[in-house]
């Protein structure tokens, strides 16, 4: 039972990490390989700023910094990417964002080699259905769950959220309805930066985030996105939960050292059975 709870908790975090990536793919057919780096950027910013600011202010500032970095990326290198079509567009996005990832990694590791984001929620473990859960883990789950719920409400029930889904489902149809796909992409890119930052906060509540974690987070987000189905928000959530459960179970029952291998095997098997991912395309 405890394993299942831990798996769900981790799964929610993975889902939160992946939703931004999958939305960007859905909107423009591009992959952002600096996604995990945006998460780490937020984490390091929060860790550094919390020496000077009260924690809530540092959190808000950190998320804002990640969103601004994403916005700057959209305004510069993504401009060039969106000018291309089809395969060339995906390829250029991969090349440019992996370069960006190296730059962010380099800057953060050079300037903040020992900084860690570690957020502790003091107090004894809370009993949930007979399972003692750490408060940090509960807080991380609550954070991920509410962020994802808000995102889904935004996409389903608000006018602007529908505009986002319309561009994902049919860009030309959206244009004919008077919606500017470029503006939607910019807004969602910024949002994805903030969501990556939130995922880092959740990670900081359960363990810790340091400057070297960007690549691992990017890879995790990528695996979740591909397993869930590129472009599908619900798929990212489902795949996050699946992989979170697999991850914790394999850690407990098999061993930490093969966990990443098992995670990748799960992803490979899923993709072999369903090449489009769990929930294919559509939001």
């Amino acid at each position: 039972m405890a394993v299942v709870f831990d798996g769900v908790a981790y799964g929610l975090q993975l889902g939160l990490l992946a939703v931004g990536l999958t939305m960007i793919y859905g909107l423009g057919g591009v992959l952002n390989l600096a996604h995990g780096q945006f998460a780490v950027l937020a984490a390091i910013a929060i860790a550094v700023l919390s020496d000077r600011l009260p924690t809530p202010a540092a959190l808000v500032a950190g998320l804002a910094i990640a969103a601004l970095a994403a916005l700057a990326t959209d305004a510069t290198i993504m401009r060039a990417v969106y000018r291309l079509d089809g395969e060339a567009r995906v390829l250029l996005s991969l090349l440019l964002t992996i370069g960006l990832a190296f730059v962010i990694d380099g800057l953060l590791i050079y300037n903040y080699p020992f900084t860690q984001l570690k957020l502790s929620v003091p107090g004894p473990a809370v009993d949930i259905l007979g399972v003692p859960m750490r408060r940090g883990s509960l807080a991380a789950s609550a954070l991920a769950l509410s962020a994802l719920a808000l995102l889904i409400v935004f996409l389903r029930y608000t006018r602007r959220g529908r505009a986002v889904r319309s561009v994902i489902q049919d860009e030309e149809g959206a244009q004919l309805c008077g919606i500017d796909p470029a503006r939607v992409r910019t807004a969602v890119f910024a949002l994805s930066g903030a969501l990556a930052g939130l995922a880092a906060v959740a990670e900081g509540l359960t363990s810790s985030v340091s400057a070297t974690d960007g690549t691992e987070l990017t890879i995790l987000a990528l695996i979740v996105t591909v397993v869930g189905g590129l472009g599908s928000v619900a798929g990212a959530l489902l795949a996050g939960l699946l992989l979170g459960l697999v991850y914790t179970m394999s850690q407990v029952y098999i061993g930490t050292y093969v966990t990443l291998v098992i995670l990748l095997l799960t992803a490979m098997v899923t993709i072999l059975i369903r090449p489009a991912g769990l929930l294919g395309r559509g939001v």
């Binding site: 889904r165 489902q169 030309e172 008077g178």
Partner: peptide
């Protein structure tokens, strides 16, 4: 002018492939 602005000006276009939002 980009297509979304022409649409806002009052020119509605129904393409042959319709371009509906299939999952909505």
């Amino acid at each position: 002018e980009p297509a979304h602005r022409i649409a806002r000006r009052g020119v509605a276009y129904v393409p042959a492939e319709r371009h509906l939002f299939p999952a909505m």
